[in-house]
Write a protein that binds this DNA or RNA. Structure first.
Lengths: 156, 156
DNA sequence: CTCGATACCATTGACGCCCATGTTTACCCA
DNA sequence: TGGGTAAACATGGGCGTCAATGGTATCGAG
């Protein structure tokens, strides 16, 4: 399983194009849709990004809420209604739509931030600030992560 | 399962390259990604290192937090966003990125410190100091480790 | 016909690959 | 047991390739 790792800052040209990092493209290479899915984060001034398969996983998970339930309605509006399929061109670039750019406050630079199964797109300075805050908190709280056993039986 | 053991001090050349100890490479030899994953420790002035499979274990473990939860966000920012895939060249060397070098205070030498399932990269003098501190604390506290039974049936 | 979007082409700069060298360690044989 | 040899590892430098980026051409829609 491929992961989105590291942070890449790429330039946005005057046509709104930006290169998707090559390693991110490689992670999405075997998917049916050759591009990314992007939707505005509802918790921060950034854009959530993922591949189509993750979108389908989200959809499956949302089914756990009853149809027509308030949670279902909200999730649908926040994610699925807002999601855009951004195919990349032969050079691996996507065009960021207006409202996406506005929501993240992106100007001529944008940061692709790996989050494991997904990634985010930030205005670089805004991300730097957000990261500094998290690191300061981590120094105090010393967060831990209960580690699962290695995938058993997985021959990989 | 292979472990990262012992400590090796290698030279960093002017291109920022450093040889990954041969025994560490052997430990990672059968993995899909031929290289190491490195991210800045959020508690010490050193760099955490591991293989891709361990990173995937971390990702699996992080899934126990709900998507979009604050815990998920923090872990992602601290680990996945900061993690770098450093593939080694045919000679077994990796290139240490700028911010990694800066964070660990590495100049022309760096120490690979085995930690079992993972390892760390230190500036040698800094590690010497950190190790002395740990040993001093151990003399006082006498730490213990509840020992598990040998994994039964696991032929590996 | 004009405008916007997308595909095509060109440039450059970083990174990966190749070769060469020295030094240590391990192994073999006398 | 000691010396000699060979292999493996750490190191240094030069070159090619690919990714990121900027510009131009072409196609389609309004």
């Amino acid at each position: 399983m491929g992961l989105f790792l590291s942070t890449f800052v790429n330039k946005v040209d005057k046509k709104g194009r930006v290169s998707v990092p090559a390693t991110f493209r490689a992670t999405l290479a075997q998917q049916t849709f050759q591009g990314i899915i992007a939707y505005r984060s509802f918790t921060a001034s950034c854009v959530e990004g993922c591949g189509m398969d993750f979108m389908e996983r989200l959809s499956e998970s949302a089914q756990d809420f009853a149809a027509f339930s308030p949670e279902q309605e909200d999730i649908s509006a926040l994610i699925f209604a807002d999601a855009r399929q951004l195919a990349w061109d032969p050079e691996g670039r996507i065009v960021l739509p207006e409202d996406i750019i506005a929501h993240a406050g992106i100007a001529d630079l944008c940061a692709f931030v790996g989050k494991g199964q997904t990634f985010q797109i930030w205005e670089p300075e805004a991300y730097k600030a957000a990261e500094a805050e998290i690191r300061a908190r981590a120094l105090k709280n010393r967060p831990t992560l209960p580690l699962k056993k290695p995938a058993s039986g997985d021959g990989k």
